[in-house]
């Protein structure tokens, strides 16, 4: 059975909210019914069929083609199934996603995995700012699930993150793990300034020494037993993180400016 495929008919001038196009929301609907779902583009009322060519029949596996960074909220509130995006995705990809799998072959915009609670989100390209963060007004960001980014991410990655796992093979911008409550963020590339700013708990796992601010305290080099469990859990994903194996790390704790007990672990870099 081929994936239910949405091919964008032409480049978009305005952003489109695609939250309605998830496997769980379209369960049991015919292509005609899906095509008639209303959508808003700028000040126009359109339908899904006006924007996308729809083909395929697998209701559990969606595929988006000819995509654009104007397609926002793809996979929002997703509760199962899988979505493949053959191109770039707009802001709020995987917003409040609870289960299932999203695989984006291109880049994603800001607030990717915002409020995410479960499932797996893989991105081949780069992600924007506030990856795994909280939507406006909320005090907790990502609450579960796994995000894997092959490229780099912007500022405030994991801002107010509460639970879950973010693995970034490239670089991260400034304020990585800011206001982090718990969870784990791994970065193989370089981190910008103020990593762990106002961090309360959680783990930032780096392989390149970041420039740390004064309120993160060096606790020395240690062999941490839990890292063997963490590294073993990476084996299930197709990521360079699965090459990590040394439990020997430099441990920094903070941010003591907010009485935080979070940690930044500096592991040995991977061999090129």
């Amino acid at each position: 059975m081929s994936a239910l495929t949405f091919s964008l008919k032409k480049p978009l001038q305005f952003s489109v909210n695609c939250a309605a196009l998830t496997p769980s929301k379209l369960q049991g609907k015919s292509i005609q019914e899906i095509a008639s779902i209303p959508m808003i583009l700028g000040n126009q009322k359109l339908t899904v069929g006006d924007l996308f060519d729809i083909s395929g029949e697998d209701p559990h596996h969606f595929c988006f083609k000819n995509t654009s960074d104007k397609l926002e909220y793809l996979g929002a509130n997703m509760a199962g199934g899988s979505i493949t995006i053959e191109g770039n995705a707009g802001a709020y990809l995987g917003f409040a996603m609870a289960d299932g799998e999203i695989y984006c072959h291109g880049h994603t915009a800001d607030f990717t995995a915002c409020n995410m609670a479960g499932g797996l989100l893989k991105i081949d390209g780069n992600a924007g700012h506030f990856l795994g963060g909280a939507s406006a007004g909320l005090r907790k960001g990502m609450r579960g699930g796994t995000v894997i980014v092959k490229g780099s991410t912007g500022d405030r990655t994991g801002d107010q993150m509460r639970r879950g796992l973010i693995l970034i093979e490239g670089n991260v911008g400034d304020y990585c793990g800011s206001r982090m409550i718990a969870g784990t963020i791994g970065v193989l590339g370089n981190a910008g300034r103020y990593a762990g700013f106002n961090m309360q708990r959680g783990t930032l796992l780096f392989t390149q020494a970041p420039h740390l601010h004064a309120t993160l305290q060096n606790c020395g080099r240690h062999t941490l037993p839990f890292l063997s469990l963490l590294f073993k859990s990476f084996q299930q994903y197709n990521t360079k993180f699965s090459q990590l194996n040394s439990q020997r790390v430099q441990r920094f704790v903070g941010d003591i400016a907010c009485n935080g007990n979070g940690e930044i672990l500096l592991a040995e870099p991977l061999n090129a």
């Binding site: 639970r163 240690h222 037993p225 940690e263």
Partner: peptide, 25 residues
């Protein structure tokens, strides 16, 4: 004493408790 930290790995919760030889897991 407040320095313990938890890790949720593959659906299982673990506790890391700082002790004099390192960490008790």
């Amino acid at each position: 004493d407040g320095y313990q930290t938890s890790k949720l790995i593959d659906g299982k919760r673990y506790w890391r408790i700082p002790v004099m030889d390192g960490e008790f897991l």
